[in-house]
Nucleic acid binder design. Structure first.
Length: 274
DNA sequence: CCATATGTTACTCG
DNA sequence: ACGAGTAACATATG
């Protein structure tokens, strides 16, 4: 269930792995919807091309292949990658297996929501995705413009066409850090709260990335990087999953409500609705 | 059995 | 037209 820091963690791990430079010799698809419903078409386009590099856009992983294609992967709720040798399906949850030169790349996805796309035009593919919150283009001026909506701020933060990469954990963390109530109408934020939130978003994302992502719970379906590597950021969460525990700023008990259909954690004392 | 889950999209309704 | 709410996707966990 990866968000920007988790996807970036995976991109960095795969980008430093032996898959780089390796040709894709064979592809086995066990759940056709994962690759868009036409496995033969998908495989034919990919087979023989090398994986040149890994990158990320929002919550999408991008495998740059020999021209003209890139393999774009969205992990959705439970997608994970494993490197194995040999290329035998090691779990019923492996939906796609890529046989490479000296290893194999396995896409493990119990809930089967993950999706793979082949694109020869990434600009067009990402045309409707918002900007990158960790890039220099994430300016206060641009952010402030996007807040001019009569809409709950949390709902806006989760909208990938507004800003790319923020999910439920980091939305709650950024709102807590900036003392903004999740149900606050975006257009009603004071300039001070706007600025606080603008600073908080990169801060919480960078912290998540520094700890190589957030791995919650005990289940294997929760986020893990390549080869099941857990992140460490769960130990540093300020508000997410802290229902009924004391706020680290004011000791009031953290509340959990539902906003935009998502569990939402906030401090009722210091995240004030105005 | 029931509720919940770090995501996205199609649909209805106002 | 826009946004909120809902169900759907499919499975695991508490």
């Amino acid at each position: 269930m990866p968000e920007l820091p988790e996807v970036e963690t995976i991109a960095q791990a795969l980008g430093a792995s032996e898959i780089i430079g390796s040709p894709i010799k064979e592809i086995a698809v066990f759940w056709e919807k994962t690759v868009g419903g036409d496995a033969k078409h998908f495989c034919k386009k990919m087979e023989g091309r090398r994986i040149l590099s890994l990158s990320r856009r929002g919550k999408y992983l991008i495998f740059t292949l020999d021209a003209p294609y890139s393999l774009v992967v969205h992990l959705r709720m439970s997608g994970q990658f494993y490197l194995r040798t040999p290329a035998v399906k090691a779990s019923i949850h492996e939906q796609v297996v890529f046989t490479l030169k000296n290893t194999s790349l396995h896409f493990h996805d119990p809930r089967k929501f993950g999706r793979m796309y082949l694109s020869d035009d990434l600009e067009n593919f990402f045309a409707h995705l918002g900007g990158e919150p960790l890039s220099d283009s994430f300016t206060f001026e641009e952010f402030s413009k996007k807040l001019q909506k009569e809409r709950a701020i949390k709902s806006l933060l989760l909208d990938q066409s507004v800003i790319a990469g923020i999910g439920n954990i980091y939305a709650d963390e950024a709102l807590w850090l900036s003392s903004v109530h999740p149900l606050q109408k975006a257009s009603a934020l004071t300039i001070e709260r706007q600025q606080a939130l603008w600073k908080a978003i990169p801060e919480v994302l960078k912290r998540g990335l520094a700890f190589r992502g957030t791995s919650l719970g005990t289940g294997k379906g929760n986020f893990h990087s390549v080869n099941g590597q857990a992140g460490e950021h769960q130990s540093y969460l300020q508000v997410f999953q802290r229902k009924a525990k004391p706020c680290f700023r004011c000791e009031s008990l953290i509340q959990k409500i539902v906003v935009a259909q998502r569990g939402t954690h906030f401090c009722p004392s210091c995240q004030i609705l105005k």
